[in-house]
Design a protein around this nucleic acid. Structure first.
Lengths: 209, 209, 209, 209
DNA sequence: GATGAATGAGGATTCATTCAT
DNA sequence: AATGAATGAATCCTCATTCAT
């Protein structure tokens, strides 16, 4: 991030109208990606869903990939806030993990559109997954340092976490899961990371912050 | 009109030529799905890859979804054989699970095309996943009856198994994983299902049958 | 019609099987033309409707136009028989016309498939109309010689006859007409040709031969 | 956001450009339907004839049937004007009929493209015929109330009028008819409706308004 | 004679993108 | 900033026709 670009940005403050239209477009894209998937969503549909004209889209994004990218960033940002807000002052890695995994699956219950978009986007592009998984990786390492988690390989442990959580979200979206699903999924992940069954149970029963 | 020909006509014996062309098309589709994903593969590409003309495709499949379906079935069938052959006379559910999960991830090492296609297809359609997961479900239930696995919810346990294995396969395909990955992934899954770390380690070290 | 071709035909008498398959194909084509129109009927549909394979069609007709032509001829031939048989020994042109026009419209009641095919074919090609109209033209001229019909122009008079009869057939096919329609249509045509209303009425009430 | 623009947006004011392109496309379609028939006209031909690109067509019509429908409406509209303008202040139904039928056939002489399109369209779809025939039906009923026409059945009488006129137009288009054809056809129709030959002759000789 | 697999030209349709207003 | 008309490449799909068996 160079000074110059910052200065340029400062020089032409984004107008309120422009910001609003961009939000309309991003929200529309997110809804459609969730509903129909990334590949099946046409640009004119996004424009129509946002209530603007076809051409307006191109005042904001140059290509379709650019919207997909922007939507991913937006999804990731919401995640970050989610994670940060939830577990800011929790220091035990196991507890952090219990919170994070449950929040994700819970979010699929609360905001299926968001969850569907996350799944859709994360299966269509490899990049954003890394971004989304960053906090998990952080807690994983923390847990090992704290002697809470025992695992031989970081990549495999991340597979356990991200794979199980994503599958859990899908189960929620497809109606196979009950209200307990966030806790159940979190419990299995914790056991996989070496937490005893009893403690895992206890951890996932604590109220979410 | 002889009996034989009548019977033959009723059975609609698929001609050798027809069977061969269908195989060419399915193999071509599988390769392309693996390489580019389902959504990004045009029908004329499949035809070209199979070395037949554009129109020939439509003598075999009516729509693109129909090929996707056929490819999934084919992938699932290969799995079934794989699983069945590998663990036919293993009775301990934990050992069966150790075999099955390792075989899947190992298969991603050995046949990346197959693995990529499986991942691509399983994220683009919900249906075939159930088919693929059937043996896992069987072993899961068996393990509970045998007192080997402890889990509170079947759906969540399946999320653990399928999610982790799929993520493990992705890690292999994307070059993040080493030669041990099949065993590592299997070990984490077993621990998640309640097997002790020590025993899980032992189970995933046994040579594959 | 040259001797040579007759001799040739005699030399290779059309096999019973061949004649039968041709009939199957022509009947199938006629049904489909009636049902869907000439333009919307694919050759493989004709083959399927006839219960033979795709390629067999081409053992009988070289192009699609050839079937259309053959169907028209067949339609015209049936007409000729119809007309000839019905009015063979009727000498009064007005009565012949009363019979011919009624027979056509009546045929639409009795064999809607035939009628629909005739309409479909006669609007898609100009040629067969002339063939079909030949007997009407003959009776028209006869009537003038007999002093029964008064009209100033032959083309216009033919327009009256063929136009009204075709429109009458359409009304029958489209369900707008009752059982009396053949007689009603015939009566109007006769009056148009100069027969008094009273006599026209009497003529179209006579039983058909 | 001003009132005016809101109202305008609600009314969706068809832009001048849009209206012009639509006219180009409709005119092009009409010419091609006349020249080659409805079924033999490809959409890219219409676009080319109109001088616009292939895709532009689809900004105006969703399917080919939609253009056919639009062309029929357009033809029918022109008819209405024709009829209305010609016979606005003629009260005698027989005279109105003499005018209407002659105008139609005359129009085939003057604007063969229009006439060919009308014939092509009216034989390919049933619906618009009703629209076109509406004025004829009106005059028919008027004539019966005035005691000018005698006919037993309305459907049959309409068959006489529309059938004969269409056949007359075809004769004109196919070069079988002379300059008198409009009057000749009209005369035959009138006689069919019960007008005496002498009076019919007189009526169809009057100059057209 | 019959079969049906293969062909490929041609038509229908979609959609990302440009641009003048 | 927004509009929406126009574009044309790309894809899907159909179907008449050929030909080896």
């Amino acid at each position: 991030m160079r000074r110059a670009s910052q200065a340029a940005a400062a020089a032409r403050p984004i107008s309120r109208v422009r910001a609003r239209t961009e939000t309309l477009l991003l929200d529309a894209a997110l809804r459609l990606f969730a509903r129909q998937g990334v590949g099946a969503t046409a640009i004119h549909e996004i424009a129509a869903e946002a209530g603007v004209s076809n051409g307006t889209f191109y005042n904001y994004f140059r290509t379709r990939d650019e919207v997909v990218e922007a939507v991913s960033v937006r999804l990731a940002e919401r995640l970050q806030e989610e994670i940060t807000a939830s577990a800011a002052d929790v220091t035990d890695a196991a507890e952090r993990m219990a919170i994070g995994t449950r929040r994700f699956v819970l979010q699929a219950v609360r905001d299926p559109v968001w969850a569907a978009a996350l799944i859709r986007v994360s299966t269509s592009r490899a990049a954003p997954l890394a971004r989304t998984a960053a906090p998990a990786l952080h807690d994983l390492r923390l847990g090992r340092r704290q002697g809470r988690f025992t695992y031989r390989n970081e990549v495999a442990a991340l597979d356990l976490i991200t794979g199980t959580v994503l599958a859990g979200m899908r189960s929620v979206l497809e109606g196979r899961a009950g209200a307990e699903h966030p806790a159940l999924v979190a419990g299995l992940v914790l056991r996989g990371l070496g937490i005893s069954a009893a403690e895992a149970d206890a951890l996932v029963r604590r109220p979410l912050p």
